[in-house]
C-alpha cells in the first residue's frame, strides 16, 4: 500500500503531511507526558522488529501463497496508539529512504494510510473497547482481525482518494475502489490472523506487555466515546455545513474579483498583459492539457526530443571529461 511520489500531487502531499504531522505532534506530546525513559529504546527496537517481521513469509492455509505482517495494529497493541504511531512513522521513513518503498513526498500519505488508521483507529476504536474487561484468546483474535481488516480498508480507500485527488489515473472512481478494496480485504484478514497469533502468544507468555487490557474507557482524554463524538461532529460539519459553502459560493479569488470588479472574469488587453500573455503562450508547453495545434504539436514534441537528446549528450560528455581529467590528476 506504499504510495510512490509519482502518484501524488504536491497539494495532496502537503495536505497529508499536515494531517500526519498533527497526529505526530499529538503523539509526541502524549509520549513525553508518559515520561517513561524506557519507552524510546523499546520503540526503536520494536520498529526494527516490525521491519524484520515484514520479511518473514507466512503460509496462508488452503492456498499456495504466503502473506506477511504490516505491523500497525501489532505495534499499537503493544506500545499504545501514540508510541506505536511514532514507531510506524520511523519504519516508513527508513523504508522509503533505504528501500524506495514509498516516496519521500508521499510519506505524509503513507503515514496516514498505514500508521494513523492502524494505530489510532485500530487501537482506540477496536482494540481498547474489546479489551476493556480483560483479554481472552477469542477477544484478541476478534480485535486483531477486525482491526486489521477495518484499518486496511480505510487505508486502501484513502489511497484511492489521494490518487484520484492528484489527478494521476484515468480509472473511474468506482472501478478503482472495486479493485483496491477486495485485495486489501484479503490482505487485512491475513495480517489480522498473523497479528492475532503473535498477540495470543504474548498474552500467554507475558500478558503484562499488552496495552489497554482491563483499562476503563474513561481514562485519558481521547476515549472511545469522545473519539466517536469528534468524528461524528467533524463529519456533520464537513458534510452538512461546509459542503453548502463549497457548492454555493465562488472560490476566494473569484469572490475578491467580484467584489472589486463586479465580475469573476476580467478581460484585459495591451501593455503588460500582452507581454505576460505572450510569455505564458511561449512557456506553456501544453495549455489546457492539449497541444497548441495538431500540426505544430508533433513538431514541438520532435523539437523537444531532439533538444533532450542533445542536452543530455552534452551533459554526459562533460561528466565523462570531468572524470577523465580527474583520473589523469
Amino acid at each position: 500500500m506504499h504510495m510512490a511520489d509519482a502518484l501524488v500531487a504536491p497539494a495532496v502531499a502537503a495536505t497529508m503531511y499536515l494531517a500526519s504531522g498533527t497526529a505526530g505532534g499529538y503523539s509526541i506530546r502524549r509520549v513525553r507526558m508518559e515520561d517513561d525513559a524506557k519507552k524510546i529504546p523499546l520503540m526503536g527496537v520494536m520498529g526494527a522488529f516490525v521491519f524484520a517481521a515484514q520479511m518473514i513469509n507466512f503460509t496462508i492455509p488452503g492456498t499456495g501463497s504466503s502473506g506477511h505482517l504490516c505491523g500497525g495494529m501489532l505495534l499499537s497493541a503493544l506500545l499504545g496508539p501514540c508510541a506505536g504511531f511514532l514507531t510506524m512513522i520511523g519504519v516508513l521513513l527508513i523504508q522509503c529512504l533505504l528501500f524506495a518503498d514509498g516516496g519521500l513526498l508521499a510519506l505524509g500519505c503513507n503515514v496516514w494510510n498505514m500508521a494513523f488508521y492502524g494505530c489510532f483507529v485500530g487501537a482506540l476504536l477496536i482494540w481498547r473497547p474489546i479489551m476493556k474487561k480483560g483479554a481472552t484468546k477469542g477477544k484478541i483474535v476478534l480485535a486483531s482481525v477486525l482491526g486489521s481488516v477495518l484499518t486496511l480498508q480505510l487505508g486502501a480507500f484513502s489511497v484511492t482518494l489521494e490518487t484520484l485527488a492528484s489527478g494521476i489515473t484515468e480509472l473511474p472512481f468506482g472501478v478503482f475502489v472495486a479493485t483496491m478494496q477486495p485485495i486489501h480485504l484479503a490482505i487485512g484478514t491475513v495480517e489480522g490472523l498473523i497479528t492475532a497469533a503473535v498477540l495470543v502468544f504474548v498474552h500467554e507468555a507475558r500478558p503484562e506487555l499488552l496495552w489497554g487490557v482491563g483499562e476503563t474507557a474513561s481514562e485519558g482524554k481521547l476515549t472511545f466515546k469522545n473519539t466517536l463524538i469528534v468524528l461524528a461532529a467533524g463529519a456533520a460539519l464537513i458534510g452538512g455545513v461546509l459542503s453548502l459553502f463549497a457548492s454555493a459560493f465562488p472560490d476566494g479569488l473569484e469572490w475578491s474579483m467580484e467584489k472589486v470588479a463586479g465580475t469573476t472574469e476580467l478581460s484585459s488587453a495591451g501593455g503588460v498583459y500582452d507581454v505576460l500573455a505572450a510569455v505564458q503562450e511561449k512557456t506553456a508547453l501544453l495549455p489546457d492539457y492539449a497541444f497548441k495545434g495538431s500540426e505544430s504539436a508533433a513538431g514541438t514534441s520532435f523539437s523537444g526530443i531532439v533538444g533532450a537528446v542533445i542536452v543530455i549528450a552534452v551533459c554526459v560528455g562533460c561528466c565523462q571529461l570531468f572524470r577523465f581529467f580527474k583520473k589523469q590528476r
Binding site: G24, V45, G47, L86, T87, I94
Partner: peptide, 10 residues
C-alpha cells in the same frame, strides 16, 4: 524523541 527513535530503528 522522534529522531532518536529513527536512529535506534536503523
Amino acid at each position: 524523541l522522534f529522531v532518536t527513535q529513527v536512529l535506534l530503528i536503523y
